[in-house]
Design a binder for these strands. Structure first.
Lengths: 98, 98
DNA sequence: TTGACATATAGAAGATTATCTATATAATAA
DNA sequence: TTATTATATAGATAATCTTCTATATGTCAA
C-alpha cells in the first residue's frame, strides 16, 4: 500500500478508536456505534469505508449484520513499510507471528 | 508520541517527499525547496514546522541556514508504537541499530 | 548600521475531510 | 409482500488543512 494512503487512513481520532475497538475482535457496525457513544451510525460507516478501502479491515456479513475486524497483519506490515522507507538505517521487523 | 499526531504528521504527500529527502542527509530549507520544485519556501517551512512539532526532525542552525534531518530513530519508534497499539498479536521490533 | 540572504510567520483562498440528517439498499421475519 | 432491523449512500455544512502572497525576523558581511 502507498504510505500516504496508509497514513491518511490512520490520521483521525475516531478512526483510531474504531481500530482499537475491533483490533482483537469482530464487531458489527452497531456495536461500534454503541461503543463510541457520540458518533452517529453514518459517520461510523464512513470511517469503516475508509479503513476498508485501505485494506485495513476484514469484513464479514452474518445475516443482517456486517462484522468488521482490524487486519493486524496488514497494519503491522504497513508500519514496517513506513519504517523501511523513511528510516532505512533502522531495522524494524516482524519477528514473530501468531 | 500520540499515535494520532504521528499519523497526521505523515499524512501528506509533500511532507513525505520532504521526509524522504532528508531521511539520510541534512538539508537546508532552500535545498529542500529546490529539490521539491513546485512548492514555495513558506509551504516547505510550514511542513517542516509540523514535522518539528511531531519531533520527527533534527534541526541545526549553521550560519544563516537551518539544516533539517529526519529523526530515523524517532520515526521507527513511532511505527513500532502504532503496530504495538493496533496489532498487539504481531511482534514488530527494532532488531538492530546503526 | 545597512544591505543581502535565509527562514519563519500572518493572513487569505481553495481543497479536503468529518460529521450530520435524510434516505436508499439489503436481509430477515411475520 | 410488508414491516423491521442493519448498514450504506447522498448531500449539506462546518472544520481542518494545504498552499499561496506578503511581510517579519534572524544572521552575516561590508
Amino acid at each position: 500500500m502507498d504510505t500516504v494512503d496508509f497514513a491518511k487512513a490512520l490520521a483521525d481520532e475516531t478512526r483510531q478508536k474504531i481500530m482499537a475497538l475491533c483490533c482483537c475482535k469482530s464487531l458489527s457496525v452497531n456495536e461500534i456505534v454503541e461503543a463510541l457513544a457520540g458518533v452517529t451510525q453514518p459517520t461510523v460507516s464512513h470511517h469503516l469505508k475508509i479503513l476498508r478501502e485501505a485494506g485495513l479491515v476484514i469484513v464479514v456479513r452474518r445475516g443482517k449484520e456486517i462484522y468488521y475486524t482490524l487486519n493486524q497483519a496488514k497494519l503491522a506490515q504497513a508500519c514496517c513499510h513506513v519504517a523501511g522507507t523513511f528510516a532505512p538505517n533502522v531495522e524494524v521487523q516482524i519477528t514473530k507471528k501468531e
